[in-house]
């Protein structure tokens, strides 16, 4: 019983964090670990969290766009993996994707549903009632928590036996395929992150990083040091170049233009 409340509390926190993006309780590596802790299966929670984290790496809310929601995905998938259903982590990763889409829909919906509440804040402001503004804001925090907590509770009502039977009803060849797919999905997230940063002048750094990493002797810390070193060198050399090449301003602007056009291709 206490484990169920524990999972629901994690769901609430993940729901709040899914929009405020501060403590990052909604990131799978945190949320799944906490669910694992609540259900007493810490090891499987961490394993799922780490695998799912690599898949959700590129999901970010930028500007007014809403990405798939890792909060609902991580909590419910972790309940199925670490909870009584004991699904393998790879199945959790696959199931997390449709859950994330449900969560995304709920996030969008709440952003519209909350409009009357914000209108109430306008009324409070016109009265100079600061206390009410604070209170209204706190209610929206609670709504965000419930946005994930209520669906999680509904999913938890599904008997563990059904989930297990459903999973083992899948033919073995498909289950093996799911395992491979769970490993493959990370490349989409990598691509999203790369696509966000990539410009023509940055691609060489990507390939240098790739080439160095294929040598298994270099540790991650060593790779990080090389990366930071390269960045500092590049910026230093570039700022040294700028005053000297003052005359070549137009040509570099033309190059930028070319870059942009090539990027658009």
């Amino acid at each position: 019983m206490s484990s169920i409340w524990g999972v629901l509390i994690v769901a609430f926190l993940a729901g709040v964090e899914g929009v405020v993006d501060e403590w990052e309780f909604h990131q799978p590596i945190v949320a799944c670990t906490l669910v694992g802790l609540a259900t007493g299966n810490l090891v499987s929670g961490i394993a799922l969290g780490a695998a799912l984290q690599l898949v959700t790496l590129g999901w970010m809310n930028i500007g007014a766009a809403v990405a798939p929601d890792p909060a609902l995905a991580a909590v419910v998938a972790a309940w199925w993996v670490s909870g009584p259903a004991h699904l393998p982590a790879a199945a959790g990763v696959i199931l997390a994707i449709p859950l994330a889409l449900v969560g995304q829909g709920l996030t969008r919906g709440l952003r519209k549903l909350i409009i009357p509440l914000v209108a109430q804040a306008d009324v409070a402001a016109a009265q100079g009632n600061l206390h009410r503004i604070t209170w209204l804001h706190w209610s929206s925090v609670a709504l965000q928590g419930l946005r994930v907590m209520i669906p999680t509770a509904l999913f938890m009502l599904l008997p563990a036996a059904w989930i297990q039977q459903g999973y083992y009803a899948i033919p073995e060849v498909l289950r093996g395929g799911l395992r491979v797919s769970a490993g493959l999905l990370v490349v989409v997230s990598f691509a999203i992150v790369i696509n966000m940063m990539a410009t023509r002048q940055l691609w060489p750094f990507f390939f240098i990083g790739f080439a160095l990493a294929t040598d298994g002797h270099l540790s991650l810390v060593a790779l990080g040091m090389i990366g930071v070193g390269l960045a500092i060198l590049y910026i230093k050399l570039q700022s040294k170049d700028t005053p000297r090449n003052g005359g070549s301003g137009p040509s570099s602007a033309a190059e930028d233009e070319l870059d942009r056009e090539l990027d658009d291709l």
């Binding site: 940063m197 990539a198 750094f205 990507f206 390939f207 790739f210 790779l223 390269l230």
Partner: peptide, 10 residues
């Protein structure tokens, strides 16, 4: 971004 691209490559 440079560090980011480098690390993504790795």
């Amino acid at each position: 971004s440079i560090v980011g691209m480098f690390v993504m490559g790795a």
